[in-house]
Simulated assay, not measured.
Amino acid sequence: MQNILAKYVPERAVELCFELIKVNEVHLKIVNERVTRHGDYRKLPDGLHQITVNANLNKYRFLLTLVHEIAHLVAFRKYGHYIKPHGVEWKHTFQHLMLPFIQPEIFPSSLLPVLAKHFRNPTASSDTDAKLSLALKQFDPVNDKSYIFEVPYGSLFRLYNGKVFKKGNKRVKRYECIELSSGRVYLFQPNAEVEIIST
């Protein structure tokens, strides 16, 4: 297991991750990319605890996702199954489990202040924290995608599912975008990755 983990998490985090997995009796599955999520946790009918994490994540995002999902398991065990999935109990558990990892031997110095801020009140996904998402993105392989906030007003862009949108105004934190085929308005996080369509 440690050899496998070494391919996906920072070197200095391997032993800590292995301990978390062992102590919590987690069945870890590393799976192909799912666009809608980085990972998930579920209790299987046979009572086993399964966590899946996408194989395509960079080492820092993989580590955050793994601990995020283990925090669900630990929080449910400690507080019961009636807590909110990303409520206060999960937030405290996630903060506690991440403490040993937030150090310069594991994360680059450029990420540490962003992580410290994020873990004051962790969100349901690292993607909903635009600053953290952008900071983590710099460790991804280069691709031809752009962020919504980089797309010029009125420009067309395509999502991973082929749907085409036209960018509109910013509303507080998110951008209004019109789906061309239906005329419906959708709100996009500024750090959503899209493909600009050149006209």
Rank of each mutant, 00 (worst) to 15 (best):
M98R: 09
Y82P: 01
T93M: 06
V151G: 09
S126Y: 00
F107T: 06
F165L: 05
I106W: 12
T128S: 03
G168N: 01
E105K: 12
P100D: 03
P113F: 02
I148L: 08
L112H: 10
A130W: 06
S146H: 06
D140M: 05
G80V: 11
V114G: 03
L156H: 13
K145N: 10
S146G: 06
N169E: 15
K145H: 03
I102M: 15
T123D: 03
E89L: 07
N143R: 09
T93A: 04
F119Y: 15
D140H: 02
G80W: 12
I83Q: 03
S109Y: 08
Y160H: 14
Q95I: 15
S110F: 03
L112K: 09
F76Q: 11
Q138M: 07
S109L: 13
E150Q: 14
L99S: 11
K166D: 00
L111Y: 14
K167G: 07
G154Y: 04
L112P: 06
D144K: 12
H92I: 04
I102V: 14
M98I: 03
G168S: 07
V88S: 12
F101D: 08
S133H: 13
N169Q: 14
D129V: 04
F107K: 04
I106A: 02
Y147R: 13
V88H: 08
H92V: 04
S133Y: 13
D140C: 01
I148D: 01
K170M: 13
K137A: 13
R77F: 09
R171V: 14
K145T: 15
V74L: 01
Q103V: 07
L136Q: 07
E150M: 11
K78H: 12
K170T: 09
P85W: 05
D129G: 06
K167A: 04
N121L: 08
D129E: 01
F139Q: 10
R158M: 14
R120I: 01
Q103G: 00
S126H: 00
L159W: 03
L112A: 08
N143Q: 02
V172G: 00
D144C: 01
Y160P: 02
R158V: 11
E105Q: 12
K117R: 12
F107I: 11
S126L: 00
D129F: 02
H92W: 08
D140K: 02
P113C: 04
T128G: 00
F107W: 07
K167F: 05
A135H: 07
D144N: 14
P85H: 01
Y79P: 08
K117L: 08
T128Q: 06
N143L: 02
T123G: 04
G154T: 09
H92L: 12
K163P: 00
V114P: 05
E105C: 04
I83M: 08
M98N: 03
H86S: 10
F149G: 01
W90F: 10
D140W: 00
V151D: 11
V151R: 10
Y147D: 00
F101Q: 06
K91G: 05
A75P: 06
K167E: 05
P152C: 06
Y82W: 04
S125M: 01
D127I: 02
S146F: 14
Y147S: 09
A116V: 08
F94A: 04
R120E: 15
L132M: 10
V88N: 09
G162K: 11
A135I: 00
H92E: 13
K84E: 15
E150V: 09
L99Y: 08
P100N: 09
S155Q: 10
V151Q: 10
K91C: 09
K78E: 15
K84R: 15
